[in-house]
Design a protein around this nucleic acid. Sequence first.
DNA 1: CAGGCTTTGTGAAAACGTGCACGAGCGGCT
DNA 2: AGCCGCTCGTGCACGTTTTCACAAAGCCTG
Lengths: 234, 234
Amino acid sequence: MAGQRTRRRIPEATVARLPVYLRILSERFESGVSNMSSEELADAAGLNAAKVRKDLSYLGSYGTRGVGYDVEFLVYQIRRELGLTHDWHVVIVGAGNLGQALAGYGGFGERGFPVGGIVDVDEAKIGTIVGGVRVRHVDELASVVRSRNISIGVIATPGTAAQDAADALVAAGVTSLLNFAPAVISAPHGVSVRKVDLAVELQILSYYEQRRATAASTSTLRAVPGERGRGASA
Amino acid sequence: MAGQRTRRRIPEATVARLPVYLRILSERFESGVSNMSSEELADAAGLNAAKVRKDLSYLGSYGTRGVGYDVEFLVYQIRRELGLTHDWHVVIVGAGNLGQALAGYGGFGERGFPVGGIVDVDEAKIGTIVGGVRVRHVDELASVVRSRNISIGVIATPGTAAQDAADALVAAGVTSLLNFAPAVISAPHGVSVRKVDLAVELQILSYYEQRRATAASTSTLRAVPGERGRGASA
DNA sequence: CAGGCTTTGTGAAAACGTGCACGAGCGGCT
DNA sequence: AGCCGCTCGTGCACGTTTTCACAAAGCCTG
């Protein structure tokens, strides 16, 4: 196989939207839809058509002018580009409230990311079963990672332990981290880190709420319950 | 009170970072640190100093040249700007796996967003206690929202029910939505929407993993376990 | 109180992401 | 076969975000 020719670099913003397209396309395909235009896809994703086309163009010229995109083919291409042609096992560090919830939440496995292990430092939790997986000691992390060939680690510890968890994961050979702890973690070059902080999201919403409140008391009136708009408005 | 004079509009990217600064500053303040430079703050947040200074400058000129920022004062200013001077009750729609996890996770209340109610459509779940709050029927949503003066709703339903949940929340008077369901939802103008999709985050990590894998097999060697770098590297 | 050291605040430039507009190419119809 | 209508792919202009670089302003020392 000569393989993928020029291997364009895909902008981060586009990479973040590909999973959204993928979900929509998969759903439509299940419903028997075989073709979609950039505009239909844009409506479903809450974006505009030009952006969708530009995003998809990074994958190659897979659309047909005058017709649209073949849903099944596009699903395949996006999966391939995202590396979703096989499952990725993940290991969760921290079997507390959040870790248990994540393990119990079926969403991971369904979407191709089965939980391959959970570890914790707390002796009391070791051996308990969470989401069908037995909690093991953090010292066994490296062996867990190796046995399942895991490259993605999920950090679900308290903020104070997050950096230790990250270091342990990296030492065990993990190269991607998804951090749910309320702390900034650093990792060596070559390790990807993404962060999800629930409190931060709420605080951002709070900002716009607060802003609306003061704006309303300043100006006379506002209203405008009008048509459906998009995302975070001011 | 003449109040805040010109009321600058703060860029969205900055708003998203303010909560991070706030957490770091609060932690340092607890540890007895009373002053911080933009560079120290930048290190802790994993950013560069110029960005920190520009971000903070949107709040006003609260630093002292040659010295840095007064931690306590800055904490106060950021809280005020983000509208965190009082608690915001939130209502959770969906008492399934994810909803229960979010309610049970103490993180919300601790950070100023106590759970003021949980609703679901499933009769079997009504009346059960989750995270100290009794699950009520979704028909009671409006009364729950009014009784606690709630303006933030959290959507923790399956994807197929997410838009219904959003509509119900908006109808009940909620003006900010945090959507955990794997679906794009639309809301009227004037309603802020933010989305957290765990599967999307993992798929983004998958992309970079996959990319590294193919790059490694193409080039001869890479390595570089060198110094600590930042976020999602290629 | 002058000079040196430090760190802020901010213009200006560069980089990045988004939206528009239109040429190019394809399918269908006559 | 030729024409028409539709939708993709993309160059370009615009807005936003990041980075750079430096003057302004405070503290400290002698």
